[in-house]
Design a protein around this nucleic acid. Structure first.
Lengths: 338, 338
DNA sequence: TTGAAAGCGCTAACAA
DNA sequence: TTGTTAGCGCTTTCAA
């Protein structure tokens, strides 16, 4: 027998009907089977090295056992830990992950999601959504289980899992204000991402609540990249030269801020303190090591997978989970004017 | 019609037989179709929003359209660019990627590959292989198309794509020797990985060819991680205190070397020069910026995907592709004894 | 060029 | 508890 064994081969060998063999190998199916026959079937399956054909099973059960994972850019160090959390959790639940990278391109997001739907993914984990993504919003109408990660789409009625960014930014501001800073700038990411909005809003609120109500100075970078951060920080330093601290929308931008400071002949933290967001790998090795808002990346991935599993199990109501963030103080922040 | 349209719906609407509709929508199939009927079928498909069910198609054609990608640890910054190269190239060829992370665990590698095989992956891209992986070696006997990436399994008769590490290490040694270094240490990775072997062998050969034939000092780290690198470098410094330069098996280890030097009160590059391998993201932001052997990560991924596509197209002979590496000189290397 | 019939491997529904 | 029948949606073979 050169070809792979089928359930019929197993059944024949065990002297039972294919349907019986199927039930014996799959206890979840309706119909109790004698332990005796079940044993014979299992033995036959083992001897033949039988593994069920997932394609045939999918066709019959209408369940593919596959989940789509859509990421904006796997090269961004924040994402791999999240993807790992998703992947490991789903894998343990018997689901495999089809990963698609959109390169932050809405068109590629649309085609990726279409292709994943065409492949009959049972669920979708989407980390690439812009706030106004029509593609993602359309998912809410579909019956496909969906969880947004990190990047939310307001009012889409979809589940969302991310870090509690507002609390993180608040802690960062409290930290800086406590050190004595009153002139604080914020290098934000692109405005079409929910993360940016959330963080900027939290910044404004935190400053409004701080002693002396420092005026928020906000500049948007064109992307969450080092070069974009450098450019935005340079503009900020040119416009508001008296800043003593700069928060960055994420760690990539923070590295850009470092570069802009160096360009301007300013030292960190002696002249300007810097705070990042995400605590991505390696930022503790920068000079100076970066103070940043740590988000539980792996746990976010795990939580997203769990929420998705809930939807696949029949839970219809969308869920929002904000996981605790934590300010990690390193050497990029210090009292001003030293 | 709440349910998705099938080929029968399309056929009915176009007034033809399902088989005809199938042929009309899939020109590659045998049997020429009149442009007139083909047009009607296409129109019907468009109106109904028909997309073929990949599951049913797979069952019939025995092709899943899915490729498995097995990585040792997505969190390692070298891998994401490679995975992106693989994923984008395969996606453009109409293949989707199932990604599995083994966490550097041979057992998980075995179960991942088994599961991917059970899911009828048409091909496999394996970046997790240890030199003696029985699981991977068994793939050579199977008929499943396989490409090893970065980590080879000698004599397995499988295709391999990676960087030209030997040339890279040679260039690094030439660079150090040119600066005047004669006492050079090598912090190697685990010995069960082909990358480690290749790089260590290249180091020995390069030193043997250098003026004065410097004696190679090699210590193995237990894993390609910062902490393991730090420990190995500490042992090395304790044993051979007169080293003026240390090459590291990869950039993670190099960061560990930085830490061990700091622990020992030594400065880089004033006291000891350091060279890494891979040029992973952010190592140019370390203090000092790391001199390292750059491997074309994304291109390696693309090349691996291309080789796999070749196998899927019928090419049986295994292929070996070593992509050019390049020494990137930054500030972690300088003449000795300053 | 098109239609008819069959079947990929599995499991759901029903019957015994 | 087990067997029978049928069919998931598609494509392939064969016949017209």
């Amino acid at each position: 027998m050169a070809r792979r064994p089928t359930i019929r081969d197993v059944a024949q060998r065990a002297g039972v009907h294919p349907a019986t063999a199927s039930r014996a190998l799959n206890p979840a199916l309706p119909g109790r089977i004698t332990e005796a026959t079940a044993g014979r079937v299992r033995a036959a399956a083992l001897e033949l090295g039988y593994t069920p054909d997932p394609t045939a099973r999918s066709l019959r059960t209408r369940r593919s056992g596959v989940v789509g994972v859509v990421v904006p850019d796997l090269t961004n160090p924040v994402l791999p830990p999240i993807v790992r959390g998703v992947e490991e959790t789903l894998w343990d639940a018997g689901l495999a992950c089809l990963v698609a990278d959109t390169d932050n391109d809405p068109e590629r997001e649309a085609s990726a999601i279409a292709e994943l739907a065409a492949r009959r993914c049972e669920g979708l984990v989407v980390a690439s959504a812009t706030r106004d993504s029509a593609t993602v919003r359309a998912l809410a109408g579909d019956d496909v289980a969906t969880v947004l990660v990190t990047r939310d789409v307001p009012a889409a009625g979809l589940s969302f899992v991310g870090g509690d960014d507002a609390a993180g930014v608040r802690a960062a501001v409290v930290h800086l204000v406590g050190l004595g800073h009153r002139r604080i700038g914020y290098v934000a990411g692109p405005g079409d991402l929910s993360t940016t909005r959330t963080r900027v809003r939290a910044l404004r609120a935190a400053l409004a609540a701080a002693p002396g109500r420092p005026r928020p100075v906000v500049r948007h970078a064109r992307a969450y990249t080092v070069t974009a951060g450098r450019a935005a920080a340079a503009r900020m330093l040119a416009g508001d030269g008296d800043l003593t601290a700069i928060l960055a929308g994420n760690d990539m931008l923070a590295v850009g801020v470092y570069e802009a400071l160096a360009d301007a002949g300013l030292r960190c933290p002696a002249d300007v303190s810097v705070v990042g967001h995400n605590d991505m790998p390696m930022v503790d090795k920068l000079e100076p090591p970066l103070t940043t808002v740590a988000i539980p990346q792996y746990e976010i991935g795990v939580a997203a997978a769990r929420v998705l599993l809930g939807h696949l199990a029949g839970e219809r109501a969308p869920e929002r989970r904000l996981l605790a963030t934590r300010l990690v103080v390193r050497r990029s922040t210090a009292p001003p004017g030293r």
